[in-house]
Nucleic acid binder design. Structure first.
Lengths: 102, 102
DNA sequence: AATGTATATGAGCATATGTTCATATACATT
DNA sequence: AATGTATATGAACATATGCTCATATACATT
């Protein structure tokens, strides 16, 4: 095929895809999203389960929030997070299944 | 759920998943893999279609080779690359479809 | 009002990443 | 053998990333 004959991806599409994969590329964020795929979690709960500092978890949640991959509700001082992008959770689970069945 | 009640991902699983998503997280590699999902390509062809330097393309192919996501055959001076992980191509196409149908 | 609790956020730092530039390698052609 | 062509690779550099530390914010409790 010549350059002009290609079914090109638009720059926007490539960048959007890159953003999604970047979000899933970090072990901490994989663990957070996997947790949230199972249940709604408070920040504190995530911090304890992943055995990380509150700050590190909070920074990652902030990033996932900006990408609209998670959302939260507030109850007093506690913030409960849930996932907010079904498709991204599906992709994550597909890759995990693929890896585990090898 | 308490910490001990969780269906945990093993460290290896998380790291393997992270590696796959990292591979897909860069716009250049997305474009290369998308090209290869359509046809076998020489390095030179990829370089021209993506309008990048030969060195940059070659470095990215090296990375994809190390992850066994692509393979190549040699014909004289020309190296023809093809993808080598059907599942990763499927994931890439799913994400692209998801983005484009929004 | 003062203190405590849960979370968010900014700065700083070490490491990872992607490109360029220069050069090496391997085969083809003359 | 000498030159040309296609690709690979190492070093260097700028930028991105993920964490820690310190601190801010907002609500709860006393």
């Amino acid at each position: 095929m010549e350059q002009q004959d290609h079914a090109f991806l638009s720059t926007n599409t490539v960048e959007d895809a890159s953003r999604i994969f970047k979000a899933l590329a970090d072990p901490t964020r994989i663990k957070i999203l996997y947790l949230l795929s199972q249940e709604e979690c408070s920040v504190n709960h995530i911090t304890e389960v992943l055995n990380m500092t509150q700050s590190a978890v909070s920074h990652q949640l902030s990033l996932l929030r900006n990408l609209r991959l998670v959302k939260y509700r507030r109850d007093g001082n506690t913030f409960y997070y849930t996932y907010d992008d079904e498709h991204v959770i599906t992709i994550l689970n597909q890759v995990i299944s693929h890896i585990e069945c090898k």
